[in-house]
């Protein structure tokens, strides 16, 4: 009986892992394809036949074969630990995401809180990797990343809180369920972003902040290749580097999925009862998340990069006051209507 429940738990834990792995491999390929199409070229075309779909598998095979290099003066223990902590942090956060109406890793009542808390571990792993590498460039990247992630957590949390004020629950499953149905203006879905005009502003703030949280352009300073070589990943190679890469893509998906739950109705179908149900729910949920991931890629290949002080200015002088003000306005709106 006990072994059965443990097996069941393991199975439940494995499903997000498989989703992440498959997603990460195809997202890396997809990013290169998106980049290719934005830049008037084809992107990977050879490996695997159809539009180079197996490119990421080939890359992964190559990375597995690489020699494992640890710099001579590095802190070997922390150096090895950092990629795993980073991946574990983004993987653990998937536990509270409601993938469909009948699948959620752990139906926590403080789901959002857990998710935000566990993703904060990411900055620890980045600092760990940067410090342990014993390289000045890595240290720079780590320091920038620490400042950036800590700063941008404030607007992220404020915009998430605005949603929580409207939804009245920290449980992501409850937040999703209350967005079911198509009653807005008679036909539009009951997504939170359509419920309250200030939630649109909250979503914009949320999206800008998750770009910074996930180290995406125009906020990719921790690994800005033209300044810091590769930032905190400079000394990493082979599978350890691949772990960072995997975690980065997992983090992108995680934050996008969180955005899908909070603003776009999670696993709810946009057509009411049409195409609804647990399996379709999974489809809609992933579709919404992947669309946001696509927008992140689109931005990456379009914009230049901010400078570190401009990044901080944007956060502390614009986004944080705006998110606080927006929070108050949303609360007022909820009081009045």
């Amino acid at each position: 009986m006990i072994t059965e429940s443990i097996l069941l738990l393991l199975l439940f834990a494995l499903i997000p892992l498989i989703i992440i792995l498959i997603y990460a491999l195809f997202a890396i390929w997809g990013e290169r394809k998106v980049a290719g199409f934005i830049q008037d070229r084809l992107g990977p075309m050879r490996v695997g036949g159809w539009h180079g779909w197996a490119q990421s598998f080939a890359d992964l095979l190559k990375l597995i074969q690489k020699e494992d290099i640890i710099p001579a003066n590095a802190d070997r223990f922390l150096f090895r630990l950092a990629p795993f902590i980073m991946f574990a942090a983004s993987y653990a956060a998937f536990a509270v995401l409601p993938f469909s109406s009948s699948f959620i890793g752990s139906n926590l009542d403080i789901g959002v809180f857990f998710l935000l808390a566990i993703t904060s571990l990411l900055s620890i792993s980045v600092i760990m990797g940067g410090w342990a590498s014993n390289n000045k460039w890595s240290l720079f990247g780590a320091m920038r990343s620490a400042a950036q992630m800590v700063s941008y957590e404030v607007p992220t949390i404020m915009s998430v809180l605005s949603v929580i004020v409207v939804a009245g629950s920290l449980n992501l499953m409850t937040v999703t369920e209350m967005q079911s149905g198509n009653d807005t203006l008679g036909f539009l879905p009951n997504w939170l972003i359509l419920q309250n005009p200030f939630l649109i502003i909250a979503f914009v703030i949320f999206f800008i902040s998750i770009l910074a949280e996930a180290h995406r352009v125009p906020f990719d300073l921790p690994e800005s290749e033209s300044e810091l070589v590769a930032g905190f990943q400079t000394e990493y190679s082979g599978m350890r580097w691949a772990m960072f890469m995997l975690a980065e893509y997992a983090d992108m998906l995680l934050l996008s999925l969180l955005g899908a739950v909070l603003f776009f109705g999670g696993w709810n179908s946009p057509f009411g009862d049409f195409m609804a149900g647990p399996a379709w729910g999974f489809f809609w949920f992933m579709l919404k998340g992947l669309l946001l991931v696509f927008v992140m890629m689109w931005i990456r290949w379009t914009l230049p990069r901010y400078r570190v002080d401009q990044l901080m200015y944007l956060c502390w002088s614009i986004l944080i006051p705006l998110s606080f003000l927006n929070f108050v306005l949303i609360a007022l709106w909820e009081m009045i209507f």
Binding site: Q39, S224, L303, P304
Partner: peptide, 16 residues
């Protein structure tokens, strides 16, 4: 120059 500032795509347009 654009590449140094993180703008990747203009670089490829110009290279074309």
């Amino acid at each position: 120059f654009g590449l140094d500032l993180g703008a990747f795509s203009p670089f490829l347009y110009l290279f074309t």
